[in-house]
């Protein structure tokens, strides 16, 4: 028996909007730790890891570990029927091939049940070891989204370079090239507007902008984004999900031929 009640149901709506472009089908895993997902895009270039810790739910009952295969487009269709202020409860019985999404309006005057068919998904689970990153950039998520969008009108790839000067996003294309430098800036009114660069050593990596732009679908979840870079590892682009967890996007770099 599974029963997860999330008072801030809009978080789940935003999570689905953040990942459904990148991943078509995925297994949602429930355990005592929380509600999680790990999935790769169809070309195995990017990976998304979601964790919503059990403590973040108003009610969290998961009698035994359960893996539920879902088509994310269909989940998104279901969740779009929930109001932004609705409380969302996920329910599944042991051995059932369906999951039920229950939506309650804040004043309890409307209660809706949406039952969705589960599917068998044969997905590969990857072990991601803890890593030391050469540079970690924390910046406003809207700023990062703007940079990715702007650069993708010029080129297909972005070079992200971190030096003592700041973090530089560069691209080049048929019509020309572009460089955007963001310097560390902690003298702002609100902490979420700060750009903070922790650098152990300079790093420069090249990535496909198409994936970066897809990751920025998570922007409504968090005012800030954290970008972790190491010269021999995929970049990690992380958005916090309130104080209950995170969405991490891993993207493999492009290398010189």
């Amino acid at each position: 028996m599974l029963e997860l009640r999330l008072v801030q149901g809009s978080l789940l709506k935003k999570v689905l909007e953040a990942i459904k472009e990148l991943v078509t089908d995925a297994n949602f895993d429930c355990s005592a730790t929380g509600f999680s997902l790990q999935a790769m895009d169809s070309s195995h270039v990017a990976l998304v890891a979601l964790l919503l810790r059990s403590e973040g739910f108003e009610h969290y009952r998961c009698d035994r570990n359960l893996s539920m295969g879902m088509n994310l487009n269909n989940v998104s269709k279901m969740l779009r029927c929930a109001g932004n202020d609705d409380i969302i409860t996920l329910k599944a019985d042991d051995g059932s091939d369906t999951v039920t999404f229950m939506f309650e309006s804040p004043n309890q005057d409307k209660i809706a049940d949406f039952e969705m068919k589960l599917m068998d998904i044969d997905s590969e689970h990857l072990g991601i070891p803890e890593a030391e990153y050469h540079a970690i950039v924390k910046m406003p998520s809207a700023e990062f989204a703007r940079i990715c969008k702007d650069l993708s009108s010029i080129g297909d790839t972005v070079v992200i370079s971190v030096t003592k000067e700041g973090v530089k996003f560069s691209t080049r294309g048929d019509i020309g090239n572009a460089n955007i430098v963001c310097r560390q800036n902690t003298t702002v009114d609100k902490p979420e507007e700060a750009t903070i660069i922790e650098m152990q050593e300079p790093v420069s990596l090249t990535f496909a902008l198409r994936y970066m732009n897809s990751f920025t679908k998570a922007t409504p979840l968090s005012n800030t984004v954290t970008i972790s870079l190491s010269s021999e590892l995929p970049v990690v682009v992380e958005y916090k999900v309130a104080d209950m967890g995170y969405i991490r996007f891993y993207l493999a770099p492009k290398i010189e031929d």
């Binding site: 195995h44 270039v45 990976l47 689970h125 990857l126 070891p129 496909a208 493999a252 290398i255 010189e256």
Partner: peptide
């Protein structure tokens, strides 16, 4: 020109 690496080249199956 650049070659796109795969994420599975970095992380092992569990």
């Amino acid at each position: 020109t650049h070659v796109q690496l795969s994420i599975t080249e970095f992380y092992r199956s569990t």
